[in-house]
Design a protein around this nucleic acid. Structure first.
Lengths: 200, 200
DNA sequence: GTATAAATTGAACGCCGTTTAATAAAGCGG
DNA sequence: CCGCTTTATTAAACGGCGTTCAATTTATAC
């Protein structure tokens, strides 16, 4: 049947992304399908393909929204802090918090793979580095005379490490040789890298 | 049709795992399918299901083999070294090396998810912690008087961090704010955590 | 040599992402 | 208000997926 125009293209896009987010949270990212999303917003798959290039495109939009959400939460939390070292600690704490609260949305960001060969869309490039940038900013404040390359290097090492703890914990692959908390693990990593960064 | 007995159950299992490994390396882990594996070993899907419980079971066996291969490579490398700190460095170096050489097999180990609710099979439980144990052993040698819990904690933090760098690099999600090498990033993390571990 | 047990197949099921022809509605020029 | 064009939407189809199962062929045991 024909066009209803109950919703604009942008509205349908937003509805689809929100529905996808909800499906991912309730059923897990592995079982997200185009048909489920379409059904959830009262359309058929065809309409989804009218609004997104393909299923990966939808996932990429969802992931962008997830990153924005997480980044907003974290930036809101560090705005309350004045000490750059404290800010980095809080960032790590709430990164873990968000990942724990939304494990499937968070994993989808990192485990989704755009079709082989196709370039990463600008949509993601812009967002990919937001956390690294935030860490780098605060490292710069801790040691203003360090060359930018060194700051970037440390930010990358530190944040990749935190990410590693996070993902192993969430996927149940963390070493359990002594029952410890994720928070303490993160603390150890932050302490170690920040200490090394300062005294070198 | 009917039983040929050209190969025993165990032979078919081994052939399937090897074929799967090859397919993962050549076509990527996302496009591994039961039908392709069956075709590669000259059987039909039905036979695969006679030998594996399901497709996840096949993947789990492949992943176990991948971990064994990687662990063997690493243990062979550190046998040459006497210094425990040096051993940890070499472990990290060859962990990255293996991941870089076999990106899809390595990613499959960490991104495959056994069906929700089902317990992790013993097959994987045994192997999941092999790298952590290896790190812990050498940390113990570096500081023999530390309580086991502290050693396990540090091993977990360090190795999770290295894993994080590894996976972000391989999935193209690493911060590129200053063109640095993976090797240097790993070095920074190892240096930082080992230093903190010693002087505390 | 025949009965029994096991291995292997091909076809089916219900899903998946994706494409497409048909159709219904909206917008528009007169 | 009427046709005409454009666009939104649908249902149906395609090939491929993991999985199941009845049918069939073979090896083995007696």
């Amino acid at each position: 049947m024909g066009r209803r125009s109950d919703h604009s293209r942008e509205e349908i896009q937003a509805m689809a992304i929100d529905a996808a987010a909800k499906l991912v949270e309730t059923e897990g990212f592995q079982s997200l399908t185009a048909r489920k999303v379409a059904k959830a917003i009262g359309y058929t798959v065809g309409t989804l393909y009218h609004v997104f290039r393909n299923f990966d495109d939808l996932v990429i939009h969802l992931n962008a929204q997830t990153i924005d959400e997480m980044a907003a939460l974290i930036q809101q939390q560090i705005r309350k802090k004045r000490n750059p070292e404290m800010r980095i600690r809080v960032m790590a704490e709430f990164y873990v918090q968000y990942a724990t609260d939304h494990p499937d949305r968070w994993r989808l960001v990192f485990e989704h793979q755009a079709p082989r060969g196709l370039p990463t869309p600008e949509l993601m490039k812009e967002r990919r580095d937001v956390m690294f940038e935030l860490v780098a900013e605060n490292l710069r404040e801790i040691a203003p005379d360090r060359i930018p390359h060194e700051v970037a290097h440390t930010a990358t090492a530190l944040w990749s490490g935190i990410h590693g703890i996070c993902i192993l914990a969430l996927t149940g692959k963390l070493y359990l040789g002594g029952a410890f908390s994720m928070v303490k693990l993160i603390e150890t990593l932050v302490d170690s890298v920040l200490h090394e960064f300062r005294h070198r």
